[in-house]
Amino acid sequence: MTTEKKRSVAESRTDGSKAPRPKDAATLILYRQSSKNTEILMGERSGRHSFMPNTYVFPGGRVDASDGRIPPARDLRDDVMARLIRGGCTPARARALAVAAIRETFEETGLRLAETYPAPRRSRVAIWNDFGTTTCGPDLSKLDYIVRAVTPPSRKKRFNTRFFVADAETLEGTMKDSSELLDLRWVTIPQALNLDIPLITENVLGHLDTFLKTRPEPDANRPVPMFQMRHGKRIFAEE
Rank of each mutant, 00 (worst) to 15 (best):
L76V: 01
L76W: 00
L84A: 10
G87L: 08
T90D: 03
P91Y: 00
A92I: 04
R95A: 03
R95E: 00
A96D: 04
L97S: 00
A98G: 00
A100V: 05
A100S: 04
A100R: 00
A101L: 05
I102D: 10
R103V: 04
E104S: 08
T105R: 09
F106D: 04
E107V: 14
G110N: 01
R112N: 11
R112L: 13
L113R: 08
L113Y: 14
L113K: 07
A114W: 13
T116Y: 09
A119L: 06
A119W: 03
A119M: 00
R121D: 13
S123K: 01
A126W: 14
F131Q: 02
G132V: 01
T134L: 13
T134C: 11
T135E: 12
P138L: 08
P138T: 08
D139L: 04
L143W: 10
L143K: 10
D144M: 02
V147E: 12
V147Q: 11
A149K: 12
A149V: 06
V150R: 14
V150G: 13
T151M: 00
T151R: 01
P153D: 10
R158M: 09
F159E: 11
F159Y: 12
T161Q: 06
R162Y: 09
F164E: 03
D167G: 15
T170M: 13
T170F: 14
E172Q: 15
M175C: 04
K176N: 14
D177Y: 00
D177S: 06
E180Q: 07
R185N: 04
V187Y: 01
P190E: 15
Q191V: 12
L193P: 08
L195M: 12
D196G: 10
I197H: 11
P198K: 01
L199E: 15
V204E: 07
L205Y: 05
L205K: 07
G206A: 02
G206H: 11
D209L: 13
D209K: 13
T210K: 09
F211Q: 12
T214S: 10
P218V: 10
P218A: 07
P223H: 01
